[in-house]
């Protein structure tokens, strides 16, 4: 079940909702006039962040919720993603380089790596009962 406000989306912790998440980012990106490529970058970064929460913070527990809030200012598109799962700091995931990727069995850390490459800023704030992840993309 999805609950969509104008710039806020609450969803159940299931990868089945990822297309709605991307759509939510797209609609808000179009609203502030972001170009197609920038919207695609933010959508993918938010997908990776949510996938990570579903798999790692919530260990695929479908009863949990993820909240996504979008704030826009003159030149910053900010996505705030909160969950009530296990603490997980994406900045502590080691960045894979090509050699490491080749050696990895399952490509661990790849989603986080992409997320950081696609966004201008990634901030992690551990909360008393969960995580807050802030993704920022600068635009003109």
């Amino acid at each position: 079940m999805l609950n969509i406000l104008k710039n806020e989306l609450t969803l159940e912790s299931s990868t089945d909702h990822l297309s709605e998440v991307r759509n939510f980012v797209e609609v808000n990106g179009i609203k502030v006039g972001l170009n197609k490529q920038t919207i695609a970058h933010i959508s993918l970064a938010v997908d990776e962040a949510c996938t990570n929460i579903i798999k790692h913070a919530y260990s695929n527990d479908l009863t949990k919720k993820i909240k996504i809030k979008i704030k826009t200012s003159e030149n910053k598109f900010t996505v705030i993603i909160t969950d009530s799962g296990k603490h997980f700091d994406p900045n502590k995931v080691p960045e894979p380089n090509i050699e490491k990727i080749q050696k990895m069995k399952k490509g661990g850390g790849l989603g986080m790596f992409l997320m950081k490459k696609l966004m201008d800023e990634v901030h992690y704030n551990p909360k008393a009962n969960g995580n807050e992840l802030i993704l920022i993309k600068n635009y003109n």
Binding site: L44, D47, E48, T51, K106, G107, L110, G111
Partner: peptide
Amino acid sequence: YISSSGLRVLLVAAK
């Protein structure tokens, strides 16, 4: 559209 989940499959195949 492709995310890291799709890329990871290609990595498994390459291995």
